[in-house]
Design a protein around this nucleic acid. Structure first.
Length: 197
DNA sequence: AGCCAGGCTACCG
DNA sequence: CGGTAGCATGGC
């Protein structure tokens, strides 16, 4: 049963304190984002970390802060060149700069996005949409990623896996938040173990 | 010194 | 439709 797995992982790793804001984790505190700036930072992080180690996404975020690019307005006004250069450490920087531009415009004109709206944006797929809804908007949307499929040996379409978790768990964004973060923690540990052998 | 990260799009058959 | 090449850097 998945809820038992959740408890097991929580005991094993402890609360993860997602989503990290400005490099800071807040275990057990599900009150973030506290303002629009934090909300936007989470969305940007979700895009920057696509198929990319969080460490690299974080470097890009830091550079954006340094260059005062971490706001929807700044991104919209920035030349594409400047933006892509700033996020270079996150990889796929040409694509991601474009994605950030498209998303920033959307963010500025949308109070609370629907999932379908997010999916309609170029550069936002299912996982990124759910990450944004869950971590930036506290909506109970379970996030499925590569670790989730690997850990539970699920070779099925995204929607099926998502439904499976959502049906097995209380519809509480805090649990979805923690569970996904724990799955990533466990997945990372598993990868580290198989490397040193 | 490769392999692979908290994916997505475009294109192929 | 399902499958896959391309996108790119940095950590280990």
């Amino acid at each position: 049963m998945l809820h038992a797995q959740y408890k097991r992982l929580l005991e094993k790793h402890g609360a993860q304190g997602w989503w990290p804001l400005n490099g800071q984790y807040n275990p057990g505190d599900y009150s973030h984002p506290k303002n629009e700036a934090q909300r936007f930072e989470i969305c940007v992080g979700a895009i920057l970390t696509q198929n990319t180690a969080w460490k690299n996404a974080e470097k890009a975020l830091k550079e954006m802060i340094k260059q005062k690019l971490l706001s929807a307005e700044a991104i919209t006004e920035s030349p594409l060149q400047k933006l892509s250069a700033a996020i270079k450490p996150a990889g796929y920087y040409n694509q991601k700069a474009k994605k950030l531009k498209i998303f920033s415009k959307f963010f500025a004109e949308t109070k609370k996005p629907e999932r379908e709206q997010l999916l309609g944006l170029w550069g936002i797929g299912e996982e990124t949409a759910d990450s944004i809804l869950l971590y930036a908007y506290k909506q109970p949307e379970f996030v499925v990623d590569a670790y989730t499929k690997r850990l539970f040996k699920l070779n099925k379409p995204y929607a099926e896996i998502k439904a499976m978790f959502e049906n097995a768990l209380p519809k509480d964004y805090r649990i979805y938040n923690e569970f996904h973060a724990l799955i990533v923690a466990e997945g990372k540990r598993a990868a580290a173990n198989s490397n040193r052998k």
